[in-house]
Design a protein around this nucleic acid. Structure first.
Lengths: 345, 345
DNA sequence: CTGAAAGCGCTTACAG
DNA sequence: CTGAAAGCGCTTACAG
């Protein structure tokens, strides 16, 4: 009772043809006369037959499934990540693809990594998308080397342009420049920076872009004012709290590597009795869904995650379907959004 | 190069045993001597072998995959739905399960529904979870009748307690009672209600609970003050805007069937020049992530979606793994959260 | 304890 | 245009 108990051999018998012909009809082979095709189709419809998926895969057919792998040490309660997941599913579904998702708590967990790799090796998916990966994550590189198609968010490897590699980024340089220009325009000279995860591509990239943008105004970056963090609200909070206790001089502004970190920093600042923007200005990056809602509304750099994910998903699918595709990289633009968290000094 | 080119027959040859034995080792059969087991395991490790997934499924093994099907006419941009998806993935991943997701734009789209059903019939998944389904959605009932395990959010069918049916709800009666009691306690007598999707279980259920709670205070529900809607912000907005133009008397409070609808209603009220809570009080249901952030912060009934989803996912997996499980239903509690959108009259 | 063989349900050269 | 047969890679009674 728990199986679709009719198979191609039954269909063939009822239609009075061979399984070969049934298969040809299903797979739209051109060399089937219209009359035969219709006769077979009628039987297929009548019995609600659809070919067994696993059996088809074993013959090397596509799975119409894209893998989505989230690399995240903590439970995923971040609205932004949730939205990214939704966007992948949305984009893939609209193209008739299923999405097979799994969370990788740690890339050091060999069993989970193994399961994820098997997903490719065993052809459960046609290609995969990775969110939260370190730049140059070895097991992903291994998959790419094996020829599997992989789409990676926030990744950059100089010179790696395999046709089965699809990557996407934002224009961090442009974004950081706009943010720093704006702060400098407000009169800020002493600007702290909360850095992102050094292992992720955009961590060092935003940091470097920040330094370049400062240098363009002939401003120095005070090493005591560069805080470590990892893109999470929690670490933004902890890092800022610790830093506030350790320093004597305060900058007039803080540029956080992203909005989540800015949320954490804001909380730490408030707890230390500092008001934003009256006592200190705070700038984020990403334009998180909540950024316009918090108190004070966060001035930030807007990037378009939905568009990026849609592009990435689309290109992964296109690459899967047409192996002659070339290396693809998407770089989303960035734009300053002025709200209430920065003020003139 | 694109396949895991070693198979059980090769492993068997190298280890000097038969494929049968390799299979027994992999599947932890008890009747394999320790020495043999280790010999085989070593070869498996060395070659990074893992059995082909499709081939295993064809022999009737489990897939360790749960389906997640979202029934939603529009693109999913709702934070709450995103969070639900994340929770399913989180819960399933923590139990070693993959999640196969697909969006169903319309249950009238026979091709998509067919693809979803095939997902069960072809054993691509061990069981499925449905979000956004109408109460008594025929194709889901068909799957349950066939013996597949299905977990359904927001569903209730009197007397349907098949062991492979898993459902979850919130205590709408309790929630509505608390909300109405609170409003009445603030002096409100004239309370409008924005109803949810009549096809979904909690639509009529919340409506009825509202009426019961009103009746308990001997209050009548004015039929002109019952607005249709479908749980979406858009419909909350449209319905409220239209209603405001059509009526002469205003109630002193509006109870929305959920927070999204309340957001829409709030916008319509503001556009009509009405202030919440000064001119009219507004109460939501669900405690949406944004409810504490909006202006004014929304008074609402809090339910715990994460816990509900985790429970549902867990029970679906347990039912899949142990067919002797009985019918399971989860009813989450509901609790009043007082914020700023309701005032005394 | 272990191997040979059947069986799962397809697709696709191959031969006609 | 179409069928018989091989092959995909497993698992699991069956027989020993």
């Amino acid at each position: 009772m728990r199986k679709n108990d009719i198979n191609s051999i039954e269909i063939a018998r009822i239609a009075g043809v061979s399984r070969s012909t049934v298969s040809r009809v299903i797979n739209n082979y051109p060399n089937v006369p219209q009359a035969t095709r219709e006769k077979v189709m009628q039987v297929i419809e009548r019995y609600g037959y659809s070919p067994n998926f696993s059996a088809r895969i074993m013959t090397g057919m596509k799975t119409l499934t894209i893998g989505l792998f989230l690399i995240s040490p903590e439970a995923i309660h971040d609205t932004l990540t949730h939205a990214l997941i939704g966007d992948v599913i949305e984009s893939a579904s609209s193209r008739g693809y299923y999405v097979l998702t799994h969370i990788i708590r740690s890339t050091g967990d060999t069993e989970t990594v193994r399961k994820v790799k098997d997903t490719f090796y065993q052809r459960r998916i046609d290609g995969g998308i990775f969110i939260g990966a370190a730049n140059h994550e070895p097991f992903i590189e291994e998959l790419i080397a094996k020829g599997f198609v992989a789409g990676i968010v926030d990744q950059h490897l100089e010179g790696r342009i395999e046709p089965n590699r699809v990557i996407c980024n934002f224009d961090n340089k442009l974004g950081m420049k706009q943010g720093v220009d704006y702060l400098v325009g407000l009169g800020h000279r002493n600007i702290a920076f909360i850095a992102g995860d050094p292992l992720r591509c955009s961590g060092p990239e935003r940091m470097e872009a920040f330094q370049d943008a400062m240098a363009a105004h002939a401003l120095k970056v005070n090493p005591d004012w560069v805080l470590p963090s990892d893109f999470s609200e929690r670490s933004g909070y902890q890092s800022t709290a610790r830093w506030l206790q350790s320093i004597s001089d305060l900058p007039t502004a803080i540029f956080a590597c992203n909005d989540s970190v800015a949320f954490g920093a804001l909380r730490a600042l408030n707890e230390a009795g500092l008001r934003v923007p009256d006592d200190i200005s705070l700038m984020g990056f990403d334009d998180h869904l909540l950024s316009s809602r918090i108190q004070p509304a966060l001035t930030t750099i807007r990037v378009n995650f939905s568009e990026m994910i849609d592009m990435l998903t689309r290109q992964v699918i296109e690459t899967v379907e047409d192996e002659t595709q070339m290396f693809k990289k998407y770089v989303g633009t960035a734009e300053l959004v002025i709200r209430d968290s920065c003020r003139k000094v």
